[in-house]
Computed example of a mutant assay.
Amino acid sequence: MKQLSTLLAAALFSLSAGAAEHGTPDEAISLINKTAAYLADEGADKTFFEISNPKGRFIHRDLYIVIYDRHGKVMAHGAIPRLAGINVLDYRDEDDKLFVREILDKASKGQQGPVDYKWVHPLTRQLQAKSAWFRQVGSYVITCGTYK
C-alpha cells in the first residue's frame, strides 16, 4: 500500500506542480458529471482512453478521475494509467480503511460522497486527509478526490 501511495504521489506531483490552489469538492463533482456525460456520449473505450491522457479534459489542477467497475477493478486512472485492469477493492489507507470498498458500497446505494481517507498529497508528499466524491453510472463508479 505504501508503495502505491508513493507511486500515486509522484504521478500527481507531475500533474499538479503548477497548481496555485487545490481542487474543491464542487470542482470534483463537476469533473465527475463532465465525465459521466462524456461516457454517455462517447462510450467506455473512448472515455477510458481520455481519462488516461495526462493533458486531457479530465485533469484539472490536482483533480483527476478514476473509474471502477462494481467489483473494484480500475477501468481507468487519470494519475496512474497502468492501474487499469487491477482490482483494488481491498486497498487500504494508512489507517487500514477499506476506502474503495466503502466508495463502491455507497455508490451502489445512490450516494455521491464523500468517503474520507488518508492519502499522500502530491505536492507536499505528506499523508493528508482526502475526500472522494463519486457517482455510479451504469456498471461504473466515477470518482474524483479532494485534499483537505
Rank of each mutant, 00 (worst) to 15 (best):
T124M: 07
G145A: 15
D116S: 13
E42T: 05
A132N: 03
Q136L: 03
D93C: 04
G138W: 10
L89M: 12
K34E: 12
D116P: 00
G113C: 02
K109M: 12
F48I: 09
I65V: 14
E50I: 00
R82A: 12
K46H: 08
E27W: 03
G23K: 03
N53C: 03
I103C: 07
P54V: 10
W119H: 10
D105T: 14
E21H: 12
T35G: 06
P81I: 02
L89H: 03
S16Q: 09
T143H: 03
Y117F: 13
A40R: 13
S139D: 15
T47I: 04
R101D: 11
T124W: 02
D116N: 08
F99L: 03
A37Q: 14
D90V: 01
H77D: 13
A79P: 05
S131V: 02
E102A: 10
D45C: 00
D45I: 02
Y68P: 01
Q111E: 15
F49C: 07
L63G: 01
V66I: 11
G18F: 09
P25R: 11
A11S: 13
Y91D: 13
D95V: 05
P81G: 04
I86Y: 09
K46A: 15
I103L: 14
E102H: 09
S30P: 00
A84E: 12
K118H: 10
D116C: 04
D45Y: 05
K2I: 08
V100Q: 06
D96E: 15
Y117R: 07
I80C: 10
V120D: 01
P122G: 04
S108F: 08
G85P: 06
Y91R: 10
A19L: 04
E21S: 13
L4T: 01
D45N: 08
V100I: 15
G23Y: 04
K97H: 12
V115L: 08
L63N: 05
R92N: 08
R70W: 00
S52D: 12
R101E: 14
W119T: 06
V66R: 04
F48D: 10
A20N: 10
I86C: 06
A28N: 04
L123N: 08
E42G: 00
D26W: 00
L4D: 02
S108P: 02
V115P: 02
F13G: 14
D62G: 06
K34N: 14
N33V: 01
S139I: 06
D105Y: 10
R57S: 13
G72W: 07
R92C: 05
Y117E: 04
D69C: 05
N87K: 05
G43N: 09
K109C: 04
R125E: 14
A9R: 07
H77Q: 09
